[in-house]
Amino acid sequence: MKLTIDNQLVTLADLRAAWHDGVTVSLGDDARARIAEANEFIDDVVAHGDTVYGVNTGFGQMAQVRISDKELAHLQENLVRSHAVGVGEDLDDEIVRLIMLMKVVALAAGFSGVRLKLVETLCALINNEIYPRIPSRGSVGASGDLAPLAHMAGALIGIGEVRVKGDLVPAPIALKAAGIEPITLAPKEGLALLNGTCVAMAGRLPSRGCCAN
């Protein structure tokens, strides 16, 4: 199915079809504008030197630590690397696809401040059927599904492994083969990827049989 994320709410039928049959996802003009506006706002905040959680501070209990401007990209990359501590069997590709799609939907609302390029790269992974290897266990379902989403985010920045047509491949190799450039995370982007209920949602949604949408 083809799905354009813009002003319409996604339905459970959309999500079920994306899970079951696959999906080609794109961003509508309004969604692109929303994402870009929120991103400009974050750029302004950084330029102005304001202290904003997760943009130029540590995370969780370490939120009181101010991070210098030259370390902001490093901060986001460290967040992804340190939080990728999932264990257990890998999630199925269908579930991973749904997780990525729901992350696109959430970011496209324009309240997260990430760059358009980040959301487009996530779409490119979905559209090229490149599925980050996400271990199924190790989320407590608050702060979002931090560990599983860190594994997803890793693929975007070219670390960890992805599954392509059933084979495990190092993320940089798979991205290169598909002509996708790995992301260097900008301020707030690691956090925006890791916070979210997408994994719990994806685990819950694919009910089989009949269900109203």
């Binding site: 996604v10 974050i42 729901m102 702060s143 209920t197 949602m201």
Partner: peptide, 14 residues
Amino acid sequence: LRTEANAVTDNPLV
């Protein structure tokens, strides 16, 4: 689930 699927679920929000 329909509500949650259309929600923004990160933090902080811009």
